[in-house]
């Protein structure tokens, strides 16, 4: 009897200066400092700056969790596992109210 197919769970992970942290279906794992800041940001729905724009963090889905994972060191966070919604959100916000930078020129 074959094993029943399992649901594909949302997974996001980041790397901050060689330290890793991830969120998968409500579970936070990884570096203690990153996780502590991420859980605080998700709990209080903090506005986390990413690429110069503020995003609201929460722990309800992978998008909010990925934003919360940026709360520790936003400028040094490298996204390893992401969701398509995150890229779409960034592109939307960047097209609407992104400041002019040399990279966008």
């Amino acid at each position: 009897m074959a094993r029943p197919a399992t649901r594909t769970r949302d997974l996001v992970s980041v790397s901050v200066d060689g330290r890793g942290a991830a969120w998968c279906d409500g579970f936070w794992s990884g570096d203690a400092e990153i996780i502590e800041d991420a859980r605080l940001a998700a709990t209080y729905r903090a506005a986390v700056p990413i690429n110069g724009l503020k995003f609201e963090a929460h722990g309800e889905d992978a998008l909010g969790a990925l934003i919360a994972l940026h709360a520790h060191l936003p400028g040094r966070t490298i996204v390893v596992e992401s969701t398509p919604e995150f890229g779409a959100l960034l592109a939307e916000r960047a097209a609407s109210d992104a400041p002019e930078t040399w990279s966008a020129a």
């Binding site: 399992t6 997974l11 790397s15 890793g20 991830a22 409500g26 794992s29």
Partner: peptide, 22 residues
């Protein structure tokens, strides 16, 4: 099962992400 798999998957992803510094 579902919780354990999510927990293990999260821990594995965090461990894998820790090796990425590029």
């Amino acid at each position: 099962g579902p919780l354990r798999s999510a927990r293990d998957r999260s821990a594995y992803a965090a461990k894998k992400a820790a090796g990425l510094t590029k």
